[in-house]
Design a protein around this nucleic acid. Structure first.
Length: 655
RNA sequence: GGGGACGUAGUUCAGUUGGUUAGAACGCUGCCCUGUCACGGCAGAGGUCGCGGGUUCGAGUCCCGUCGUCCCCGCCA
């Protein structure tokens, strides 16, 4: 029998009792974490988010009570009334280990079935099981810690931005689809059949409009949506700390963000010292082979094109060639080298050259092509010492005159990070924030055969490069910047275009005619023409920041209810089929038809051809009535039967 | 869209060259136990080997397909 709470209230939480509380009558509530039944004495560990307290039930002191305690099972919800006493033997593993509660009353508030995953810190369950039973997974202390850390970080940020004069303003979730950028999540409009809202990839345009409106310091903790493939650090919905400032410069944005990150880190008891170092995009790529370098370790890339130049024909490679040194890795086995080679190829490189620097000389498959002298020069250039391993990767394609960024050694950059981890060269507890600046304004898209924004189309070009906007778009530098922490991109921002003329020129460089531009961004272009202050800002990835501060490698560990890599919610079973009536209401059929079935259900038919003739078409069997049904479809088709009684879809077979 | 790893009891895993009734630990159930704290002891229950097909006298094991989870490339302004 379950008991009511009545007017009973907790006097303490489970993690706070200590020696000073001895003698107090207390009321605790929580979950039965563990029951240790020793026969005439039963110990219950009572758990809530704050910790554990041991509760004792003695058979001789109170037979009824002891029997009740005997009925409890793990994860039962109980209330305990009793007296705090000092323990006979202290348990030094528990913060409450000096005391225990001698129960005088036990209220079983709820029972629990045997749980599929144990509530332990070091859980071995698969992520699939954890996600299916996320509500139980979240009972575990590490998840409680992560989500409470997230709360403190967001709270600290909100407090900071408030103090800095920022105003939090909500922007719409149901908005207009933007042509540039990630794939949109679409929401059908019932009132306007065939038309759609898009969920925002970011509140970019709205925050710029707020600048035009005179809210000169805006911020928002905001959910963003992108319908792209997932990764450990990418979810279809994620949270940004979005901010924008009028009358600002990159330096001013950096100062504000550095202050914010200092507070966010402090919430995790981590101290950081601004200002953060800066690196240009060019330099980051040249030295680290990535635009988000992890600067906690060295192993920087070296351009060794000069050494490979003479052997260019023999090796059939393009220049430039970049190299890096793996310290102390000259002893790597053939198998290990093969693995590294596999890895760089998976990262898009054509080949990996290796050279082992040994006492007796340099061992390398390049010996024939480069000669002794070449290898020695390679060693000098890279600064490799005895027992080091030199790794070199040639460019896939030579750098085009108009595209100086195209031949970056990104595969080698990925190898650098992998090797540093493998060789354990990455120091723990180091927080290397970094600004990466001067990104190119455009990237060339091979698939679309046009220039695309490398940040977004509202990013301001560098003042000095305005004259190249039409002639050499690939050489135009932008006023965009990224915030990087330990090799992770935490945020991305820019100074925006506030001149409608320049905005038009950027649109046309992107291949958007002025007609298309005004169709898609007309309201925005118009707004720019009504007195827009110079402005800029940034958006910080809250999930990534909290994951790093929590020491987690996946943002799923800091999101209460995340989705799988197939963008599904295993607990809620989303996405899901919907009632055909809902689709009908939204006008979402396309080349589908809904046909009534004699059984009272409906057929949802997807087809290539639709014919009204009785002779053409297909015969299928109604899964409810088992009667044959004629569907007037031809070509490739697919039909499903919806039975409203059982609320079940059945795929039809037939021909 | 492509590559890789994995899928066996509630959970985490083992399972030999294809061969009798698929095992272990934890968890669960029952009994015993007065100071445990990952309590201990004894007994017991628990399996569509993800799913479908194929090869074979015989498949958890081999082959094909499919579904699911994770990692990476592409993609992610």
């Amino acid at each position: 029998m379950l008991e009511k709470l009545n007017n009973l209230q907790r006097t303490h939480i489970c993690g706070e009792l200590h020696a000073g509380d001895v003698g107090k009558e207390v009321v605790l509530m929580g979950w039965v974490h563990r029951r240790r039944d020793l026969g005439r004495v039963i110990f219950l560990d009572l758990r809530d988010h704050s910790g554990l307290t041991q509760v004792v039930f003695n058979k001789e002191a109170n037979l009824e009570l002891h029997r009740k305690a005997d009925r409890t099972r793990p994860e039962f919800v109980v209330a305990v009334e009793g007296k705090v006493v000092k323990r006979e033997k202290t348990n030094s593993k528990l913060p409450t280990g000096e005391v225990e509660v001698v129960a005088s009353k036990l209220h079983i508030l709820n029972t629990a079935q045997t749980i599929p995953i144990p509530i332990t810190d070091q859980l071995k369950a698969s992520e699939e099981t954890r996600l299916r039973f996320r509500f139980l997974d979240l009972r575990r202390a590490p998840m409680q810690r992560n989500l409470r850390l997230r709360h403190r970080v967001v709270l600290a940020l909100r407090h900071y931005f408030d103090q800095e004069g920022f105003c939090e303003i909500e922007t719409p979730f149901l908005t207009r689809s933007t042509p540039e950028g990630a794939r949109d999540y679409l929401v059908p409009s019932r009132v306007h059949p065939g038309q759609f809202y898009a969920l925002p990839q970011s509140p970019q345009i709205f925050k710029q409009l707020l600048m035009i409106s005179g809210f000169d310091r805006y911020f928002q903790v905001v959910r963003c949506f992108r319908d792209e493939d997932l990764r450990a650090d990418r979810q279809p919905e994620f949270t940004q700390l979005d901010l924008e400032m009028a009358f600002t410069t990159p330096d001013a944005v950096f100062r504000v963000v550095e202050g914010a990150l200092t507070k966010a880190c402090a919430a995790a008891d981590i101290s950081v010292a601004p200002p953060f170092p800066r690196l240009t995009y060019e330099e980051a790529l040249a030295r680290y082979g990535t635009d988000k370098p992890d600067t906690r370790f060295g192993m920087e890339l070296v351009d060794v094109s000069a050494v490979f130049e003479p052997a260019r024909e023999t090796l059939q490679i393009s220049l430039p060639v970049h190299a890096l040194v793996a310290p102390g890795a000259a002893g790597f086995s053939r198998k290990q080298l093969d693995e590294l080679s596999e890895f760089v190829k998976s990262q898009g490189a054509s080949t990996l050259y290796t050279a082992k620097v040994k006492e007796q000389g340099i061992e390398s498959p390049l010996k024939k092509a480069l000669g002794e002298t070449g290898l020695n020069r390679l060693r000098e250039l890279t600064g490799a010492g005895a027992n080091d391993l030199i790794l070199a990767v040639p460019a896939n394609k030579p750098a085009g005159a108009d595209r100086p960024h195209a031949a970056a050694a990104t595969a080698l950059g990925a190898l650098r990070v992998r090797l540093a981890a493998q060789l354990q060269l990455i120091p723990a507890n180091q927080w290397n924030f970094l600004w990466v600046t001067d990104f190119p304004l455009f990237d060339w898209s091979e698939t679309e055969n046009r220039w695309v924004s490398s940040h977004h189309p509202f990013t301001a070009p560098a003042d000095d490069d305005l004259n190249k906007l039409e002639s050499h778009p690939g050489q135009v530098c932008s006023q965009a910047y990224d915030l990087v922490l330990n090799g992770s991109e935490l945020g991305s921002g820019s100074i925006r275009i506030h001149d409608p003329g320049i905005q038009q020129r950027v649109f046309s460089a992107l291949g958007l005619s002025s007609r298309e531009a005004s169709e898609r961004f007309g309201f925005f272009l118009q707004a720019l023409s009504f007195g827009t202050p110079p402005h800029g800002g940034i958006a910080l990835g809250i999930d990534r920041i909290v994951a790093l501060l929590a020491g987690e490698s996946s943002i799923r560990e800091v999101i209460a209810f995340p989705k799988t890599t197939a963008a599904q919610d295993l607990m809620a079973a989303a996405p899901s089929r919907v009632d055909p009536e809902q689709l009908r209401e939204l006008g979402l059929w396309g080349n589908k038809r809904v046909l009534d079935c004699a059984c009272g259900g409906v057929w949802q038919v997807e087809f290539e051809k639709y014919s009204m003739g009785e002779k053409s078409g297909v015969e299928v069997t109604c899964p409810v009535s088992k009667q044959p049904v004629h569907l007037p479809v031809g070509g490739r088709w697919r039909a499903e039967h919806w039975d409203p009684a059982s609320r079940k879809w059945t795929e039809a077979a037939g021909q």
